[in-house]
Design a binder for these strands. Structure first.
Lengths: 229, 229
DNA sequence: TGTACATCAGTGAACGCGCGTTCACTGATGTAC
DNA sequence: TGTACATCAGTGAACGCGCGTTCACTGATGTAC
């Protein structure tokens, strides 16, 4: 087994470990991710991985952060491709990008929105900024709608007493946001997540409806409900 | 350790195994369900379980069937508590029952709609009848709406070519149903599932919106969209 | 140009762990005579 | 009523497996003189 020359390709094996981890997740699910399995596939021994990640959980955290970063990039690019003065158009754009990203990277989708890995607890202070960056894109569009007087949510239920703490956690990481915008964003997200997670898990749209058409129908429902004018 | 008398309490230990399994699932998630863990908690040895279940997977299958049966009972009871000539009322009733059941039995919800257990593959021919019985309740209500001319789904996307096979699988187990009703039912289900699975997993409604109010709002959205008159 | 030394990525053996499953067994219970 | 036997639920030891993690090590590379 040839050794790497000192200080040459220092990050190569780190990247190879991560991409082999993704490969394992693709093939057998996040649950069966294992350091020994990765090492086996890379033709190295398991302890070698400890030169790059202190613990298995640190590898998982790195994967989650990569996934959120990729997701956030897609969301930001989609939003910013539509002019700022057209928040309704931005809403549709990020909705479409959401599904496209999920279909392009189903493993990444599963890792951050699906099955938690048994025994793994995400270190919130490391992961939350990346989660907020990506999920905050939808929040920012809802906020823009509200600022433009186009948010139709007068009948939206009110925040319950005693939940200011959860809200301020978001504000710490995700920046300023109106609590109504945040809540509407979560409901919208629950709709697209319901549909997309179903599609990803089954690899088929429900009962043979064309996936593109069904998703466009769903986005139209959301626009009809929440956007005025 | 006292032995059971012959032919006395023949089903007791079987039930005890199942309820201990549920307890494990509640405490540590379906993924970490293990025969040895169950035996440990029951104060018996692991091989004793093999007198009641031939394989670990048979136990899991039994749990899944129990969960679907419980879910189906709630759905059927909720539907039949509203007169047949009021399908819109039935829709709201089963929607409320859906969330109530999930909150009453979050472990059961997780087991059938959440994380699959790694390495476990459900035997479809055993499980599908129970799944169809429970999920078919929503389908039957959508069908009733359609029959009464109250289903508002003229603009619903059409079924794609080549998916007749998936549809006929449903018909085999779930009985007669219109493919449009089936597809609308799946979209409605994806909405409530998105919201309820989020609530179950977090043990909190999104960002402090009162859970009851938010769910009623969602059910109202569904009615507004799909029910005419 | 040649030699002694430091570095440090990767090795290989070992640890303790928990798992599903098998197997020959034991011993309390029920039954036939 | 008493004895011999059959039943069979549960036992305890063992199997092979894969895991994360530790540890002393090795040996190719780079560096200082």
């Amino acid at each position: 087994m040839p050794r790497l020359r000192h200080n040459e390709q220092p990050a190569d094996l780190q990247d190879a470990i991560k991409s082999t981890a993704w490969k394992q997740i693709t093939e057998s699910g996040a649950t069966s991710l294992s350091l020994r399995g990765i090492a086996r596939e890379l033709g190295i021994t398991a302890p070698a991985i400890y030169n790059y990640f202190q613990r298995r959980d640190d590898l998982v955290t790195a994967l989650i952060i990569d996934a959120y970063t990729s997701f956030g990039d897609w969301q930001i690019n989609a939003r910013d491709a539509v002019p700022q003065d057209n928040p309704a158009g931005r809403m549709t754009a990020i909705g479409l990008a959401y599904r496209n990203w999920a279909r392009t990277h189903p493993q990444r989708y599963q890792l951050i929105f699906g099955t938690p890995i048994p025994g793994y607890v995400a270190p919130l202070e490391k992961v939350f900024p990346f989660a907020a960056r990506s999920l905050g894109v939808l929040v920012s569009v809802v906020e823009a709608l509200r600022a433009a007087g186009q948010l139709n949510a007068d009948d939206f239920p009110k925040v319950a007493v005693g939940y200011e703490a959860a809200f301020s956690t978001w504000k710490n990481y995700g920046g300023e946001a109106d609590v109504l915008s945040l809540s509407v964003a979560v409901l919208i997200w629950s709709h697209v997540h319901g549909l997309v997670s179903l599609e990803i898990a089954n690899n088929q749209p429900p009962f043979g409806i064309n996936g593109d058409a069904l998703y466009l129908y769903e986005l139209a429902l959301i626009n009809k409900q929440f956007i005025r004018g």
